[in-house]
Amino acid sequence: MEGNVTSLTSAEISNLWSTYVHDSIVACLLTHFAETVTDDEIRPLLDEMLNVANGHLRAIEQLFAAEGIAKPVGYPVEKHVYSGAPKLFSDIFYLEYMYYMTKFGLAAHSGAIALSSRQDIADLFRAFLNEAVTFNDRTRHVLLEKGVYIRPPYIVYPKQAEFIEKQRFLTGWFGPRRPLLAIEVAHLFTTARNNELGKATLTGFAQVAVDPEIRNFFLRGVRVCSDIMNTVHDVLRESNVPAVMSPDVTVTDSTKPPFSDQLMMAVINALSAIGTAEYGAAMAVSLRRDIIALYASLIAKAGAFTEDGANMMIERRWLEYPPHFLDRQQLALQKS
């Protein structure tokens, strides 16, 4: 701690709080993964990443205790993971999921550093970021070794610099459309891959969910992911871009839940929120109007799905209130 340490800002508290809740979810998932994995190359990664997630929880708990801030309840493993449950996903799914989480960590921790005012908080998130970089490299290496890493499409190398000469470069509604830009393909590829992983997750969760309403919500999510993947593949095929291939993200035939319904809802809501943010980033760098409109529709679709999931969690008193500013008007009314 610094001498004369100033109070944490709202941005710092928010990022620490969100990191704690997210890592408590990750710890639950990795606990089941580590208990059921059979691949000797994947097991060490799971064990080490689980230790890292638990280390994050301890570090944030200590920081909040020192600051006099109530820590989130989050998702304790002993409450939300059912030990001894059969394996729900394949080992390759475990590896793919870890890789996806490291990519989220790269974005989240770097963003937290940029919003940190106190040096100790910036240093903490820098340490988290370095861990995410390390595990991103290691999981990608194992995916490559196993021949299941799916590379983005290749393009012919540009041979000279060019400038845009006609306004139709931006069009996309009517008539011939220009070929997709490399950056547009990169984000469409990411969108398809993320929804493939989301579809597999939702399929597995639908098999084991106890609450019928939650089960139907997961099945609805499977349909949403399928529709998004089909739409993206159509756009890619129109520009003669190879379709995105899927690795072996097999869902087993188990119907016995390894997780609580509450945890599974939290996982899906988190994935939906991450997807919505990625659609916004993709829209910002897309220059064809039809592609921009596509991402706008995906944001609306994902937003509606996320909102319905959040409402279901609120009805069950499952959604923890994030740190927030005081309602001064309410305080005044209470006094009167």
Results as ranks from 00 to 15, higher is better:
E2Y: 08
S7N: 06
S10C: 00
S10Y: 00
I13Y: 02
I13W: 01
S14K: 06
W17L: 11
T19A: 03
Y20G: 00
Y20N: 00
Y20P: 00
T31W: 00
H32I: 04
T38F: 01
L46C: 05
L50Q: 06
N51H: 13
N54S: 01
N54K: 11
G55F: 11
H56L: 07
A59P: 01
E61V: 00
A65E: 15
A65I: 15
A65N: 15
I69K: 03
V73Y: 13
Y75Q: 10
P76S: 08
E78D: 13
K79S: 14
S83L: 09
K87A: 04
I92L: 09
F93W: 04
Y94W: 07
Y94Q: 14
Y100A: 13
K103A: 12
G105M: 04
A107V: 12
A107T: 14
H109K: 04
I113Q: 13
L115A: 12
S116D: 06
S117Y: 11
D120F: 09
D123N: 15
F128A: 06
L129C: 02
E131W: 06
V142W: 07
K146D: 09
K146I: 11
G147H: 10
G147T: 08
G147Q: 05
V148A: 03
R151D: 13
P152F: 08
K159T: 12
A161M: 14
E162S: 15
E162M: 13
R168V: 06
P176K: 13
R177A: 14
A182E: 15
V185Y: 02
H187F: 14
H187Q: 07
A200Q: 14
T201D: 06
V208S: 09
N216P: 03
N216A: 10
F217Q: 11
L219I: 14
V222F: 11
R223Q: 14
S226N: 08
V232M: 15
H233M: 02
R237H: 12
R237Y: 08
E238Y: 05
S239F: 01
V241S: 02
V241R: 01
K256E: 15
P258K: 08
F259Y: 05
S260R: 10
D261C: 04
M264V: 03
M265A: 12
L271C: 05
S272N: 11
A273N: 08
I274K: 14
G275S: 13
A277V: 07
Y279R: 11
A284T: 10
L287I: 02
D290T: 02
L294W: 00
L294G: 02
Y295R: 11
S297H: 11
S297C: 06
A302Y: 15
A304T: 11
G309I: 06
M313C: 10
P322C: 00
K335N: 01
